[in-house]
Simulated assay, not measured.
Amino acid sequence: MVLSVLLRFIYPPPSNMFVTAMSVISLVSMGNAGIMELKGKHMQYSKLWNFGVDQKNPADKKAKISGKTGMIIAYTPAFLAGVTSFVLVPVGNFRFDLLRSAITIHFFKRILEVLFVHKFSSWMDTEAATAISLSYFINSASMIYSHHLIQGLPEPQTDLKYVGSLLFLVGISGNFYHHYLLSKLRTKGDKSYKIPQGGLFSLVICPHYLFEIIGFLGISCISQTLYPFCFTLGTALYLMGRSCATRQWYQSKFEDFPTHVKVLIPYVF
């Protein structure tokens, strides 16, 4: 019964062990990363990097690179995976073209933000940059590949690709807007942190993560295959954990942090 309802909205999963395994791995690994964030074991970048670490006894002496360089390394392979898909498979149906276009635009936007919007004040663990880069590349390539496998199959009874396109546009726009607001908190040469203002920052501490989840949900609805939904759910779990850690960080740094500001979802969580 549940399966029959589910198949109204997604294509039947392809009989491909790689895609099946990657669906499980993506969901479990991203969910686990969210749990690690809650436990204080943060990804080695941004302001959370040294949160809770004894600065007199550093946890490691691994190689570091600038945050800007690290983020370029993280996003570029996934962007190239999207671009390359148009070369390797030049002819695809409309849904497939929408999917790989959305993935390509998503990571191209991230690269542009790194170059022209974000302001970086911290270093990044080289291993973390490599791991994030590999993760984004594998997940992007897997989304494209898993959808390529179902081309030619009958469409799901409920067509979500236009709803997905709208969600993607809302997500990418809202994410960019709140990243822009974050970038305006600092003037040139200023490395201090401030409580974010404007947009949905008056309601949640991480609206940029909320819109990132909405964007990936849009990509999932465009594709309507199992793998992107698993990746989106895993991403949501990770960003929930990171958002909780971010709120804890702000509370530790600012005594006047507003108590009514939620973590990720206005008025709810």
Results as ranks from 00 to 15, higher is better:
Met143Cys: 09
Tyr162Arg: 08
Gly164Arg: 07
Ser133Glu: 02
Thr130Asp: 02
Ser140Arg: 01
Gln151Lys: 04
Ala129Val: 06
Leu149Tyr: 10
Glu155Val: 12
Leu160Asn: 09
Ala129Arg: 09
Gln151Leu: 10
Asn139Glu: 05
Ile138Leu: 11
His148Val: 02
Leu169Arg: 09
His148Thr: 04
Phe168Pro: 05
Gly152Ile: 10
Ser140Pro: 02
Pro154Arg: 12
Ser135Trp: 03
Thr158Cys: 11
Ser133Gly: 14
Pro154Tyr: 05
Ser135Lys: 03
Pro154Ala: 14
Thr130Gly: 14
Phe168Met: 07
Tyr136Phe: 13
Gln157Asp: 13
Ser146Thr: 08
Ser142Trp: 00
Lys161Gln: 15
Ala129Pro: 09
Pro156Thr: 12
Pro156Glu: 10
Val163Gln: 06
Lys161Glu: 10
Leu153Ser: 15
Lys161Thr: 13
Leu153Phe: 11
His147Pro: 02
Thr158Asn: 14
Ser165Ala: 15
Ser135Leu: 10
Val163Trp: 14
Ala141Phe: 03
Pro156Met: 11
Ala131Lys: 15
Thr158Met: 11
Tyr136Gly: 04
Asp159Gln: 14
Ala128Gly: 13
Ala141Ile: 00
Ile132His: 04
Leu169Met: 15
Leu166Arg: 06
Ile132Asn: 07
Gln157Phe: 06
Leu149Pro: 08
Gly152Glu: 12
Pro156Gly: 12
Ser142Ala: 09
Gly164Asn: 05
Leu169Thr: 13
Gln157Ile: 09
Ala131Arg: 15
Val163Met: 12
Gln157Pro: 02
Gly164Ser: 08
Val163Glu: 08
His147Cys: 06
Ala141Asn: 02
Ala131Ile: 14
His147Thr: 07
Pro156Asp: 10
Leu169Ser: 15
Leu169Phe: 13
Pro154Gln: 13
Pro156Gln: 09
Asp159Tyr: 05
Leu166Lys: 08
Leu160Phe: 06
His148Tyr: 14
Ser146Cys: 09
Met143Lys: 00
Leu167Cys: 11
Ser133Thr: 02
Leu153His: 12
Glu155Gly: 08
Thr130Trp: 09
Asp159Phe: 06
Ser133Tyr: 01
Thr130Lys: 07
Ala141Thr: 01
Ser146Ala: 13
Phe168Arg: 03
Ile138Phe: 03
Ile144Lys: 00
Gly164Pro: 07
His147Ala: 05
Lys161Pro: 03
Leu167Ile: 04
Ser140Gly: 12
Thr130Ala: 15
Tyr136Glu: 05
Asn139His: 07
Ile144His: 00
Ile144Thr: 02
His148Asp: 07
His148Ile: 00
Gly152Asp: 12
Asp159Thr: 11
Leu149Ala: 07
Ser165Arg: 04
Ile144Phe: 00
His147Gly: 01
Leu166Ile: 14
Ile132Arg: 03
Leu134Gly: 02
Ala131Leu: 15
Ala131Asp: 08
Leu166Phe: 11
Leu166Gln: 06
Met143Trp: 00
Ser133Met: 05
Ala128Ser: 14
Leu134Arg: 02
Ile144Pro: 00
Ala129Asn: 10
Ile132Thr: 14
Ile138Pro: 02
Ser133Lys: 02
Gly152Gln: 12
Leu166Val: 14
Ile138Arg: 01
Leu149Asn: 08
Leu149Asp: 06
Asp159Cys: 11
Ile150Arg: 10
His147Met: 13
Leu153Trp: 11
Met143Gly: 05
Ala141Gln: 01
Asn139Trp: 01
Val163Ser: 11
Leu153Cys: 10
Ser165Lys: 04
